[in-house]
Design a binder for these strands. Sequence first.
DNA 1: CTTAGCGGATCAAAGGTTTTCATCGAGGAG
DNA 2: CTCCTCGATGAAAACCTTTGATCCGCTAAG
Lengths: 341, 341
Amino acid sequence: MLVSNHARPTLEDVAARAGVSRATASRVLNASPRVSPEALEAVNAAVTALGYQPNRAARALVTRRTGAVAVLFSEPEPKIFDDPHFARLIRAGARALADVDVQMVLMLVHSLDDQARAHRFLAGGHVDGALVFAPHRNDELVSIVKKLPLPVVYAGKPWGSLRGMHLVDNDNEGGAVLATEHLKSLGRKKIVHVSGPLDELSAIDRLNGFKSAMSLDDKGVARLTEDGGFTREGGRKAMSALLARVPSLDAVFVASDLMAAGALETLNEAGRRVPEDVAVVGFDDHVAIAEHTSPPLTSVRQDSDEQVKVMVEHLVKLLRDETVKKKQQMLPTVLVRRESA
Amino acid sequence: MLVSNHARPTLEDVAARAGVSRATASRVLNASPRVSPEALEAVNAAVTALGYQPNRAARALVTRRTGAVAVLFSEPEPKIFDDPHFARLIRAGARALADVDVQMVLMLVHSLDDQARAHRFLAGGHVDGALVFAPHRNDELVSIVKKLPLPVVYAGKPWGSLRGMHLVDNDNEGGAVLATEHLKSLGRKKIVHVSGPLDELSAIDRLNGFKSAMSLDDKGVARLTEDGGFTREGGRKAMSALLARVPSLDAVFVASDLMAAGALETLNEAGRRVPEDVAVVGFDDHVAIAEHTSPPLTSVRQDSDEQVKVMVEHLVKLLRDETVKKKQQMLPTVLVRRESA
DNA sequence: CTTAGCGGATCAAAGGTTTTCATCGAGGAG
DNA sequence: CTCCTCGATGAAAACCTTTGATCCGCTAAG
């Protein structure tokens, strides 16, 4: 029967009820081997009887670990968070961390103030580790975090030296090759590319994939690609520019689904039929977008849920001081065929 | 100069350096009035010199407060989190909580397991309070949370009795009236409504607003409204059903922008021009949607950022044991005109 | 001159857990 | 029968902060 006494039971209470000392009770809770079966059972019984919950603060005080990790999103433009990709990452993080019973402390970092706050927070020892999403070039946050004596796992490659950093990346380059090869296999001859902003490494990797699959030199790249800034509107504009520059184009690989949606609008307005006149492949395979364009969008899938899951597993290992075989992991991408190519 | 000693400085160190006792140093940090100006200055100097950061665990242990609040999203269907609305709420929450220096612990609650985990967590005293987003009918999570001796502020009206509950709601009913009156003022005679799922109170409130603005009885409601389930696809289907049932309709008030996007597609396919033949008003004013439909969507704006901000302010007051004048607050909605009506 | 009052500082306890070290008892070896 | 070993347990220290009780040195009132 649950005691409805207002004060929460303490380990002392549990020990008393089980007829053992506080030390033994603690050992049971922490699954120490040096405890007799009888004691173990008695303590467990007392725990459930009293509805005992360890006091996190007290535990943290002595163990010097908090049982929480920070999840940092660095993004200078707040509106980018309307991107469904962001929601997906958060959801995946929440789930994966909950599964291992770790608190998720979410921090969104936009301004310099936010950076300072994040720094204080991380340096203050309020978390045991961090997951960092910082895709942009020369992000100050990365430099800050790097200096801290704190286990960190990055999503994708942060800008700068990767030495000793733990990260989980999607195979952006491989995905881009996949997409481009697919277009080539359809017999397309004039393939162009709408890239993401080149201050993000994922965009660069995708561009590089396109470049190598097409065997392009820098001049070719300059002619056949256009930056769409990872926005829908940017996708529209980039597509217009490419149509003007390469009127005979018959296929386009677009570095994100959102931009691809914009590009499709432009192609429609220009009277080009998809996929008859122009084949289109996107990237992200975000179903909420890809399934609702007309026609539905063929796209490269990167499994964000998996990425975050692997990041969490990786971080947990670091927290447990286990050795990790590979500091930097690469996740495969696959092509999902719909009607646009 | 920062001491690069690996161990973090403690209050004891600060006190020693300032030439006062630990107690005095503590009072300075907590802005107690009973401290001399000299002591205050000496302590502050020591704090900055050492880069001292209070140990959260130790503080939590003695004060019995954690400096963290939980943010709970209860949603049986995980995919709903792809809804941009969700990202917006999270972003607003992160910002508002960071501004008052409170940790945000995010929990997504889908399954019964998740509920149990949330219960353990909240009952375990790991947070000082909670923000709860649980729009659905008879959500078990609400009953669970209600029983806990924990300050909680709800987003919108949770199902069931509202006695003594703290909540911040948008004026859904008022917004629906606004939308409907606007359509009437345009001279429209046959106005119909695509509602949200009627197991969400926000959907019911919007339906009620429509009902009262149109002076409908239940029979009228049954004929002129259709449930679109707050999804794009649902919006399409509901619109089809309404077109079949009321072929002469000349306006529609749709209870969410996402559904409105679907409804617009259906109207296009049916050859009805918007707004000439059918005027359309949405709800949410989610720019990423409303500005990209064709034509751009007139919509009722509910300011989610503001809602969350007010929720946080409200919760903070509860945490400080301040009295709150109004337990239940209602935020106004406004009509944003674009081209669809 | 004594004493009450007061501002300001210190002392010490409390808060709940983990963990080291010592103790205790039983069982095996000599 | 005694000595050792070893496994299980308990006592107590340590983690760092807040806070009520206490104390000290002065001034103002009686």
